[in-house]
Simulated scan of single mutants.
Amino acid sequence: MTTIFLLEDDPILGKAIQLQLELQSYRVEWVQSLTEAKNRASVTSPPDLFLLDVNLPDGNGYDFCQWLRGEKLNTPVIFLTARTDEESVVRGFEEGANDYIRKPFNQKELALRIRNQLSDMKATLDLVRFNGVTLIKNQQVLKHGEALISLNRREFEILTTFFEHPETIVTREQLIERLASGEEIFDRTVDSHISHIRSKLSKNGVKGVKINSVYGQGYRLEKAV
């Protein structure tokens, strides 16, 4: 279930937003102060979207957004505020906001903006890039320039692991664990798939990345010199 973290100190407005979003099948975690937000927001298991009021009893939403971005969270942030001056809007975006809604607002408008941000985030998560080469997860292909390189399921899982952990040693055990789906996988199976991936990279002229063997440990995706 999609989770939305709502920071809003107005109890009437906060409850109204929570009820409306829950009717749309969102899970809403609602807090009413900056302190409570920092205590309850998880950076290891973040929500899918943050809705932040600006004016709070113990600070402002800008500070919270700045804290989120400082923790390297790319989760979408939408500000909800009565501030309408251009300076406040600009500051919101400077602190890392994705959108800015002025109060009072229509619930339908809020719902649409939330859907747009979630859709944009999903599209971003479907792409993983490393040194000019892009792995398109929802199409299970590798893109280099205008060329699209098709991958079978196991090749895709292996490359996804490498692209999610570039320039890091990935052991055969880790790859076997990722590939296993009720079937027995052997070291030589992993080696064979990596050989096929290397062949596809070479045949399609991919020069930006390479998969190097690390003796006695596994493999590592690196930038090609």
Score class of each variant (00 low, 15 high):
155 E>N: 07
115 R>K: 14
120 D>P: 02
101 I>Y: 04
99 D>R: 04
152 N>Q: 09
139 Q>T: 11
141 V>L: 04
139 Q>W: 01
87 E>Y: 14
135 L>F: 01
148 L>W: 05
109 E>Y: 01
150 S>H: 11
133 V>Y: 13
117 Q>N: 11
111 A>D: 08
145 G>E: 03
138 N>Q: 10
95 E>Y: 11
90 V>L: 13
106 N>W: 10
133 V>M: 06
81 T>F: 09
99 D>H: 08
86 E>W: 02
146 E>F: 04
152 N>P: 03
140 Q>G: 09
107 Q>Y: 13
114 I>N: 06
91 R>N: 04
152 N>M: 11
124 T>S: 15
146 E>K: 11
122 K>N: 06
136 I>L: 13
123 A>C: 12
155 E>F: 00
115 R>I: 08
155 E>C: 08
150 S>K: 11
98 N>K: 06
103 K>D: 03
131 N>R: 10
115 R>Q: 14
107 Q>L: 14
117 Q>A: 07
139 Q>M: 10
101 I>Q: 02
96 G>V: 11
95 E>W: 06
123 A>M: 15
102 R>I: 15
87 E>H: 14
109 E>R: 13
94 E>G: 09
140 Q>V: 07
92 G>Q: 02
133 V>C: 03
124 T>R: 15
92 G>M: 01
99 D>K: 07
120 D>Y: 12
99 D>G: 02
132 G>D: 07
81 T>Q: 07
97 A>R: 02
91 R>I: 11
130 F>P: 06
144 H>T: 06
149 I>N: 01
141 V>W: 01
83 R>W: 09
94 E>V: 13
122 K>E: 03
93 F>M: 10
138 N>F: 00
94 E>D: 12
105 F>Y: 02
84 T>R: 15
134 T>F: 01
106 N>S: 14
133 V>T: 03
126 D>Q: 07
122 K>W: 07
118 L>K: 11
106 N>H: 08
130 F>W: 05
141 V>K: 03
116 N>H: 12
134 T>L: 05
120 D>F: 15
106 N>D: 12
152 N>V: 14
91 R>Q: 09
90 V>M: 10
123 A>L: 15
143 K>E: 03
136 I>S: 08
97 A>I: 14
81 T>Y: 02
152 N>C: 09
139 Q>R: 10
103 K>M: 07
131 N>H: 03
100 Y>N: 10
120 D>N: 13
136 I>M: 07
154 R>H: 10
147 A>S: 09
88 S>R: 13
119 S>C: 13
151 L>T: 07
146 E>C: 03
142 L>N: 03
140 Q>I: 06
83 R>G: 06
89 V>Y: 03
146 E>S: 09
92 G>R: 00
92 G>Y: 01
154 R>G: 06
93 F>G: 08
139 Q>S: 10
85 D>L: 12
127 L>N: 09
142 L>P: 00
